[in-house]
Amino acid sequence: MTPTAPIAQKPRTDVNPVRIYTLRIDGRDVSGREDETILTVARQNGIFIPTLCHLDGLAERGACRLCIVEIQGSPKLFAACVTLVKQDMDVITDSARIRDYRRKILELIFSERNHVCAVCVVNGNCELQDLAVKLGMTHVRYDYLNPPQSVDASHPRFSLDHNRCVLCLRCIRVCKDIEGASTWDISGRGIHARIISDLNQPWGESETCTGCGKCVQVCPTGALSEKGKSVAEMTKRPQFLPYLQMMRKEAEI
């Protein structure tokens, strides 16, 4: 990942200047700004931590729990995407215990909906599929829940397949924070949580959707996809996000 360039800020005199901490990640000495997360600093240093709900350019949620790490001296686990670095922190991103938990969490996610890669529009271009390989998940030991989910193909250009949704909520965040339309939200809760547009209308009948397609580009799986593309062409381009954010900050100054 590219390190995020420090943004020019007006000098502040009312608080202490921004601190830089030194810490250890997997035994390596690294440094991070006080407002940077373990995930950011790890990636700056080429240390891999798996993520699913995280996406550069979107607000963090700390929800998928795949980025859990250990911090020496604490029995608890921490989500790297929402834990800020601290001086002398000793982070372990890869241990037998963490690997085991991550794989099990991924198995849970696979068991939740109907993830049939073989017939999925993003087969081969899917973050979930890739994670299974990266985390060494060869099979799911939990029962598949096989919920009766539906497909919403009412939008002229895009379609929504709830069978493939992992509830990372990237679509909701990009629509609210970047596009500013807030077309998406989530209905219900727990295992019944589901992505909805407006008042749970078919996407094609949404009054607020601008059709910008950002949600489709950030979706890690085949839940949101473009119509009329073949499986091989179905690549997602979420890279626009950090760029958009940078340009907006630029415009503010």
Partner: peptide, 21 residues
């Protein structure tokens, strides 16, 4: 717990459902 889980994080959302099952 399953029906009161908010559904935000995967371990609780799916884990409680699996446990209940």
């Amino acid at each position: 717990c399953m029906s009161e889980s908010c559904g935000k994080c995967a371990p609780c959302r799916v884990g409680t459902t699996q446990l209940f099952g």
